[in-house]
């Protein structure tokens, strides 16, 4: 329960950052999709049900703070969670590069889902803006994910309670046994 609360709090902080601070400091209306990173992280590290629930809740919250079609991000992030969860069973999840790869795939997938679901909501003009912004968004998401991975590793290296932060090291232990 504590882990879920921590994840939820972290997700909320990411959301607030995406809505307030990051648009102010980043040019061109771009902001890194920190929640996407968190959902991929959850897919690799959390249980199926609790992870899926959190992914949906994050999407639901994102729908409140972004876009005009309720449920779009909730469906998108949940789908990404499930896809990563299924794919993770066939991948070597010990590598941090995998998370970056999954973030890249997740960004492209999210872009596709936004176009598809918006099309279903009669917003058919969104495809061009999304496709035009996708390459830069991809780079931004990769860069922010790299920074977050470094931050997690740094926090884990401090030992004590911080060493218990779930992450690659925990993932490693799953596969070492």
């Amino acid at each position: 329960m504590l882990r879920l609360t921590v994840y939820f709090t972290l997700g909320f902080i990411f959301l607030v950052l995406q809505a307030t601070l990051l648009p102010k400091v980043l040019p061109g209306e771009f902001r890194p999709d920190l929640l996407l990173f968190l959902v991929i992280y959850l897919a690799l590290d959390e249980g199926e049900f609790s992870g899926a629930l959190l992914a949906w809740v994050f999407g639901f919250l994102l729908d409140i703070f972004a876009g005009s079609t309720p449920g779009l991000y909730a469906a998108t992030l949940l789908t990404i969670f499930v896809a990563v969860r299924v794919a993770a069973a066939h991948l070597n999840t010990e590598s941090s590069l995998l998370i970056l790869f999954l973030v890249a795939c997740g960004t492209l997938f999210e872009g596709g889902m936004v176009i598809l679901l918006s099309f279903l909501a009669d917003i058919d003009d969104i495809s061009m803006p999304v496709l035009q912004r996708l390459p830069l968004q991809l780079l931004l998401n990769l860069f922010s994910s790299l920074l977050l991975l470094r931050l997690i590793a740094l926090l884990q290296s401090h030992g004590g309670p911080l060493a218990q932060i779930p992450g690659l090291r925990r993932l490693d232990s799953h596969y070492e046994s």
Binding site: Q18, T20, R31, L62, A66, G67, S68, Y73, V114, Q137
Partner: peptide
Amino acid sequence: VISEDAGSWFRTVL
């Protein structure tokens, strides 16, 4: 205006 759209694909403000 107190915040912008939390995603990169849409244009809304709060």
